[in-house]
Amino acid sequence: MEYSLRNNLMEIRIESLGAELVGMKDLITDMEYIWQKDPKYWAKSSPILFPFVGALKDSRYFYEGKEYNLSLKHGFARDCEFQMSGQGDNYLEFLLTSNDKTKKVYPFDFKLYVKYIIKDKNLRIEYKIENTGGKEMYFSLGAHPAFNIPIGKEIEFSDYYLEFEKEETGEVNTFNGTLISSQKKIKAFEGKILNLDRNTFANDALIIENPNSNVVYLKNRKNSRGIKLVYKGFKYIAFWNKPGAEYICLEPWNGISDFDNASGDLKEKIGIEKIKKAEVYHRALDITIL
Score class of each variant (00 low, 15 high):
residue 23 G to V: 03
residue 23 G to A: 13
residue 23 G to M: 03
residue 24 M to C: 13
residue 25 K to V: 05
residue 25 K to A: 01
residue 25 K to R: 14
residue 26 D to W: 09
residue 26 D to H: 12
residue 27 L to S: 10
residue 28 I to T: 12
residue 29 T to H: 11
residue 32 E to V: 06
residue 32 E to C: 05
residue 33 Y to C: 02
residue 33 Y to I: 02
residue 34 I to C: 02
residue 35 W to K: 04
residue 35 W to R: 02
residue 36 Q to L: 02
residue 37 K to T: 09
residue 38 D to Q: 12
residue 39 P to Q: 04
residue 40 K to C: 02
residue 40 K to H: 05
residue 43 A to S: 10
residue 45 S to K: 02
residue 45 S to T: 00
residue 48 I to N: 14
residue 48 I to V: 15
residue 51 P to S: 09
residue 51 P to I: 07
residue 51 P to L: 09
residue 52 F to D: 04
residue 52 F to H: 06
residue 54 G to I: 12
residue 58 D to P: 03
residue 60 R to K: 15
residue 60 R to M: 14
residue 63 Y to V: 10
residue 64 E to V: 03
residue 65 G to I: 05
residue 66 K to A: 12
residue 67 E to L: 12
residue 70 L to K: 08
residue 71 S to E: 14
residue 71 S to R: 14
residue 72 L to N: 07
residue 73 K to C: 12
residue 73 K to F: 14
residue 75 G to M: 06
residue 75 G to E: 11
residue 76 F to D: 06
residue 76 F to W: 03
residue 77 A to W: 04
residue 78 R to N: 07
residue 80 C to M: 12
residue 80 C to Y: 12
residue 81 E to I: 14
residue 85 S to V: 09
residue 85 S to F: 13
residue 85 S to R: 13
residue 87 Q to N: 10
residue 88 G to Y: 13
residue 90 N to D: 15
residue 90 N to P: 04
residue 90 N to A: 04
residue 91 Y to R: 07
residue 92 L to H: 15
residue 96 L to I: 10
residue 96 L to N: 04
residue 97 T to H: 08
residue 100 D to K: 11
residue 102 T to D: 08
residue 102 T to Q: 10
residue 103 K to Q: 07
residue 107 P to Q: 03
residue 107 P to H: 08
residue 112 L to W: 14
residue 113 Y to S: 13
residue 115 K to A: 03
residue 116 Y to H: 15
residue 116 Y to W: 15
residue 116 Y to P: 03
residue 117 I to T: 11
residue 118 I to Y: 10
residue 118 I to R: 11
residue 119 K to L: 08
residue 122 N to G: 12
residue 124 R to W: 06
residue 125 I to D: 11
residue 128 K to R: 14
residue 130 E to G: 08
residue 130 E to V: 06
residue 132 T to M: 10
residue 132 T to N: 13
residue 133 G to H: 04
residue 133 G to M: 02
residue 134 G to I: 08
residue 137 M to L: 15
residue 138 Y to C: 09
residue 140 S to Y: 09
residue 141 L to W: 04
residue 143 A to C: 06
residue 144 H to T: 05
residue 146 A to L: 12
residue 148 N to W: 03
residue 149 I to F: 06
residue 156 E to H: 01
residue 158 S to Q: 09
residue 159 D to L: 01
residue 160 Y to A: 00
residue 160 Y to W: 05
residue 162 L to E: 00
residue 162 L to A: 01
residue 163 E to G: 00
residue 163 E to Y: 00
residue 165 E to Q: 06
residue 165 E to C: 00
residue 167 E to C: 01
residue 169 T to A: 01
residue 169 T to D: 08
residue 171 E to P: 01
residue 171 E to F: 01
